[in-house]
Nucleic acid binder design. Structure first.
Length: 278
DNA sequence: AACTACCTCAACCGCGATAGC
DNA sequence: AGCTATCGCGGTTGAGGTAGT
């Protein structure tokens, strides 16, 4: 409908019938990349036309967004990313694009596919609904601990590397749980938006360690630990981890008290995303 | 080796939201 | 205000790959 409508001016009826569908060829990809570099993104129907592609604008946009655009991360989702998807799904539901915003380099399609092929599959095997209490139990007692154990294992091995490079300073023996390290990086602080940590590199703060405890369950249950809402006004942005665009390092971070929230406006995250544990 | 079942993920479709005239 | 074009999202499909028999 929409396709017929929007391509009406650019293509004749005969041409419309000849619109290509299915997988993209290398030639089509290179044409699309070339014309996007010339004309920029947007106006996808026109772009497809000028590029001489027998594709709908919609198809071009999808190919670019999900496959061709720069800084896309490919390959299996890391345990951190998986954990984050599970947690964010409790907050956002099936709003895949919203969830994907917290996973730089990942597309909504990838998040959606992960949910359908992995999470829903598990629920199905357990003969329960993915939103049921039974499945939440499964997440809490089996899936999430398994993921966090993987994260912890990765973190400890990476920590050893970090300690030799002395680019990171730990404070007060406090452990950090960062459920979305990449968002942290992208968002930055003090209004910085040009932080460009390599997309395939796990950020240092996230490398510290990960813990999971009953607070996760509170989150899954929709509850908040009362103390969580207190105290974070004590924190200024300078208390936060500061990333250097050039050095890809965490220069400093500080803990305030035993249980602290990092402010949304600083990190671009909601309070459920970050905790410090004593 | 051949067949089947299952899995993954890129791509498509429909629809609602938004922009621009 | 109403219409049209475009964009973006979520649901779904199906081709290709892989594991099991």
């Amino acid at each position: 409908m929409e396709v017929e409508k929007t391509t009406e001016r650019l293509y004749s009826a005969q041409e419309k019938v000849k619109m290509t569908k299915g997988g993209w060829t290398l030639d089509e990809d290179s044409k699309l990349i070339h014309y996007i570099s010339l004309l920029g993104q947007g106006r996808w129907d026109s772009l497809a036309h000028f590029a001489g592609l027998k594709r709908t604008g919609k198809s071009c946009r999808l190919r670019w967004m999900n496959y061709l655009r720069p800084n896309l991360r490919r390959g299996e989702l890391t345990p951190q990313e998986q954990l984050l998807i599970l947690l964010l799904h409790f907050r956002y539901g099936n709003r895949w694009a919203k969830i994907a915003e917290h996973l730089p380099g990942r597309t909504d399609n990838e998040v959606k596919n992960y949910w359908r092929t992995k999470v829903q599959k598990h629920a199905k095997q357990l003969h329960c609904d993915v939103n049921s209490l039974q499945f939440r139990d499964f997440l809490h007692y089996q899936w999430l601990p398994r993921l966090t154990e993987q994260i912890r294992a990765t973190s400890s091995s990476q920590e050893q590397l970090m300690s030799s490079s002395s680019s990171f300073t730990s404070h007060n023996n406090t452990e950090v749980l960062i459920l979305e390290n990449s968002t942290f990086l992208q968002t930055g602080i003090n209004g910085s938006t040009n932080i460009t940590c390599p997309i395939n590199h796990t950020p240092n703060v996230a490398e510290v360690t990960s813990l999971i405890d009953d607070n996760i369950w509170n989150l899954l249950s929709g509850n908040r630990t009362s103390g969580f809402e207190d105290g974070f006004s004590d924190l200024s942005s300078t208390d936060m981890a500061v990333y250097s665009n050039s050095q890809d390092q965490c220069h400093s971070w500080a803990s305030v008290g035993s249980e602290v929230l990092l402010p949304d406006e600083t990190l671009g995250l909601n309070d459920m995303d970050l905790w410090l544990f004593p």
